[in-house]
Computed example of a mutant assay.
Amino acid sequence: MAPIQTAAELRQALAGASTPRACTCALGACAGWESLAEYRWETRQMTQVATLRDPAIEEPTLEERHPNGTRYESPDAPIAVQFFPYNRCDVWHCALCNRHLLRYTEFGGYNVDHRVRVLAPDNIID
């Protein structure tokens, strides 16, 4: 699977997707980045459809992009493909609600934290 590297590529990957429905599964809304214990990840209904991780880059940047003063956890924070944490994400599709979700794993010392955010096309920027 070739990595998505631009906002245009990400928008194109989502083009023609079915209209999302409200999620009633264990994932919940996930409007901003949320920690999601592995037992809440609904493996049977999820399909990985893309990756934003470029395997040629050993250590992607930790720089974030917030041109409108948002923060990492803000539901309206921009989705900037080449910036943290998006440059470490995979894109998943939920068969039950038709939503696309971004997922990455945060590592810190002995802590492993899976994080999930709904992929809102209106938030995608360059």
Rank of each mutant, 00 (worst) to 15 (best):
T43F: 13
C25P: 01
L27R: 12
T24C: 10
A95H: 06
D90S: 15
C94V: 03
P78K: 01
Y86H: 00
G109Y: 07
R65M: 03
A8P: 13
G108L: 08
N98M: 03
C94F: 02
A50F: 07
R21G: 02
Y72R: 15
A50G: 12
A29T: 13
E64Y: 09
S18T: 12
V112G: 00
G109Q: 04
A120C: 02
E73A: 14
Y72I: 14
C25R: 03
H100E: 10
D90L: 11
H66S: 08
V91Y: 04
E34W: 05
S18P: 10
R65P: 00
A15W: 14
P75L: 00
R11F: 14
T24I: 12
G28E: 03
D122M: 02
R11P: 13
Q12K: 14
P20M: 05
C25V: 04
Q45S: 15
R88I: 13
G28K: 02
T105Q: 08
C97S: 06
D126H: 10
R40S: 05
M46L: 13
V112F: 03
V91N: 08
Q48K: 13
R99P: 00
R53V: 13
H114R: 10
L52R: 03
P85W: 06
A95W: 02
C94R: 02
S18N: 12
E38H: 00
